[in-house]
C-alpha cells in the first residue's frame, strides 16, 4: 500500500480551506441553514437551558422540580429530542463554523474597527463555545446514554455527572473545582456573546436590518438580550456554586470521582 504523500495532504487541506468553497454549489444553502440553526433550535435551546438552570436561584427543590418536569417525557422521547434538536444541530453548526473560522484571515490588528472586533470575537467565541459544549455535554450528560459507555468510559473520565433524579448533582459537579467554575463561566459567556452577536449579524445576512441606521438601532435589542442572558447564565452559575444540598437526599457517593476533580477547594 502506498504511503499517503505530503502533497496529497496539502492538496486536501487546500481543497477544504482554500479560496473556493468546500461545499461547492450548495455553499449558500448550507450557510443559510447554518445561520438559521444557530437561532432555532440552538439559540432557542440556549435560552431554555439557561432559564431552566436559573430555577436553582430559587433553591435546589425548584431546580429538581424543573428537571422532573423535563424528564417526565421519558427516556426515548428525550433521546430523540436531544439528538434531533440539540446535539445534531450543534454538531452541524459547530463543524461548519470551524470551517468558516479556518477560512477567514483575521486582521483586527490592522483594522481595529468595532465591527471587525465583533467579527473576530464571533469566531473566537464560536470556537470556544463549540469545544465547551462538547466538553459540557460529556461532563454532565456523558454523550451516550448506553450503560457500557457510561460506566466504562464517561464516568471514568469525569463525565456523566448529572443525574436527573438528583438535580443537585449538577451543582456538585460544577463546584468540584474552581477550574470547572471558570470554564463554565467562560463557556456560558462565549455562548451568550455568540448568540447575541449572531442574531445581529443574522439580521444583516437575511436582510432584516439593511440601512446603517437600522443596523445601529438593532444593536440595542441584541445587546440588551445578550446582557440579560449573560446575567441569567452567570446568576445560575453562581446559584449552582452557592446551592445548599437538599436535606431529603443523601450526598452522592464521591468514590468514583477521580482525585483531580475531587480535590476541590470547597471540600
Amino acid at each position: 500500500m502506498p504511503a499517503i504523500r505530503i502533497e496529497n495532504w496539502e492538496r486536501f487541506l487546500v481543497s477544504i480551506l482554500g479560496p473556493s468553497s468546500p461545499f461547492g454549489q450548495h455553499d449558500f444553502i448550507i450557510r443559510r441553514i447554518h445561520s438559521l440553526v444557530g437561532l432555532v433550535p440552538i439559540g432557542a435551546y440556549l435560552i431554555f437551558h439557561l432559564a431552566t438552570n436559573a430555577a436553582i436561584i430559587d433553591g435546589v427543590a425548584a431546580y429538581q422540580h424543573r428537571a422532573d418536569q423535563i424528564h417526565r417525557l421519558g427516556p426515548t422521547t428525550i433521546f430523540v429530542l436531544e439528538w434531533l434538536f440539540i446535539f445534531l444541530p450543534i454538531l452541524f453548526h459547530g463543524m461548519i463554523g470551524m470551517l468558516i473560522v479556518a477560512r477567514g484571515e483575521r486582521n483586527v490588528a490592522n483594522y481595529p474597527y468595532g465591527g471587525n472586533v465583533r467579527y473576530t470575537l464571533q469566531r473566537w467565541t464560536g470556537a470556544i463555545a463549540f469545544v465547551f459544549i462538547l466538553w459540557h455535554v460529556f461532563h454532565m450528560h456523558g454523550w451516550i446514554r448506553a450503560e457500557w459507555w457510561i460506566s466504562g468510559v464517561a464516568s471514568r473520565f469525569g463525565g456523566h455527572r448529572f443525574d436527573p433524579e438528583n438535580a443537585y448533582s449538577a451543582a456538585e459537579a460544577i463546584r468540584a473545582s474552581w477550574l470547572i467554575i471558570v470554564l463554565y463561566a467562560i463557556g456560558v459567556l462565549a455562548s451568550v456573546y455568540h448568540l447575541a452577536n449572531g442574531i445581529w449579524t443574522m439580521g444583516i445576512t437575511w436582510g432584516v436590518w439593511t440601512s446603517p441606521h437600522a443596523q445601529q438601532w438593532a444593536k440595542i435589542p441584541c445587546l440588551t438580550f445578550g446582557l440579560l442572558l449573560g446575567f441569567l447564565g452567570l446568576g445560575s452559575l453562581y446559584a449552582m456554586v452557592a446551592a445548599e444540598p437538599p436535606q431529603t437526599l443523601v450526598a452522592p457517593d464521591t468514590a468514583n470521582i477521580p482525585p483531580a476533580i475531587h480535590a476541590s477547594p470547597r471540600s
Partner: peptide, 14 residues
C-alpha cells in the same frame, strides 16, 4: 448565491 457568493460575507464590516 452561487459558489463564492454573498454567503461568505462574515459581517466584519471593514
Amino acid at each position: 448565491v452561487a459558489e463564492g457568493g454573498i454567503q461568505i460575507c462574515g459581517n466584519a464590516q471593514n
